[in-house]
Nucleic acid binder design. Structure first.
Lengths: 152, 152
DNA sequence: TATTGTTATACTCTATAACTATA
DNA sequence: TATAGTTATAGAGTATAACAATA
């Protein structure tokens, strides 16, 4: 079977299950990715944040609007450069982050069943190869994940 | 890094590139999956077709409407059971199928670069394991891909 | 009544273009 | 002029619920 089709099918099944797990915990994939980025990295501005997640700035604004309405974060202008909006998680956002982290960790435990560390290393490496083989502008390769417990 | 996150990132990059490749050839992922299914399998009805692709019946109707409007296929009632709509590819649909097959084949060649047959076998197996680990209702496991040349 | 498919409607995620505010 | 972000709008893909046609 073509490897792209295998990847597409697996990713579809897994991503739907993961979406369900996040939804049950009160989140969604975009909100989870945004919370991870806010929690683990210092982004100079929203464009960097959007790039780290792999979406456009306007798309990020869309999600931030919803999350701010939900009380998960606040945006303030940076006094040093009032064009820049500083995004900060609220206590409510922190609580959601922890609930989602729990859901993601549980999910990953379920996902790994039947695969040993060597398998997982090989899988991660090969997935990186696939993405690299078709990457156009190459998402930041230094964007490794700093906190293994903090995401699925 | 959590394996689910590695999969999500890789799948996002790869699926966007694949969507672009299909779009350049005049198609989309859903239309490609539908054409593959029409070409390689005999489905008793649209519900089976939808299930094979992993979407709901109403979603399939949505795509079939667009594809029929585009002249890629026709729907006729089955005389033996007039509730069933027989879906048949037109010559135009056949031509698109062949263009998309070419695009998908080229894409897969690019995608496999740097991975040998052993890698690909291991990767396919592990992707299956991941999907199986989180599958809820388990998509038809007998739905193997009958024509390796016919898809990405 | 049960089955097959369609229609109506809506939601999520994403994007581009035009715009405002700031530098 | 250039940069950061927002607003307006749109499109693709998906879903559920209600419906029509057929058995």
């Amino acid at each position: 079977m073509p490897i792209g089709l295998a990847l597409a099918r697996s990713a579809k099944t897994v991503s739907r299950a993961f979406d369900d797990a996040l939804a049950a915990a009160g989140g969604s994939l975009p909100s989870w990715l945004i919370l991870i980025s806010l929690k683990t990295r210092a982004h100079a501005n929203q464009r960097e944040l959007a790039a780290a997640i792999g979406i456009q700035g306007a798309t990020l604004t869309h999600h931030l609007n919803a999350m701010e309405s939900a009380g998960l974060l606040v945006r303030r202008r940076d006094p040093a450069n009032r064009r820049v909006h500083q995004v900060t998680m609220t206590d409510e956002g922190e609580r959601l982050f922890h609930r989602l982290r729990r859901a993601a960790t549980d999910f990953d435990r379920q996902l790994r069943a039947g695969l040993d560390d060597g398998d997982l290393d090989a899988l991660t490496r090969m997935l990186g190869t696939l993405a690299g083989n078709v990457a156009t502008e190459a998402a930041d390769p230094t964007d490794t994940f700093p906190n293994p417990a903090a995401a699925h």
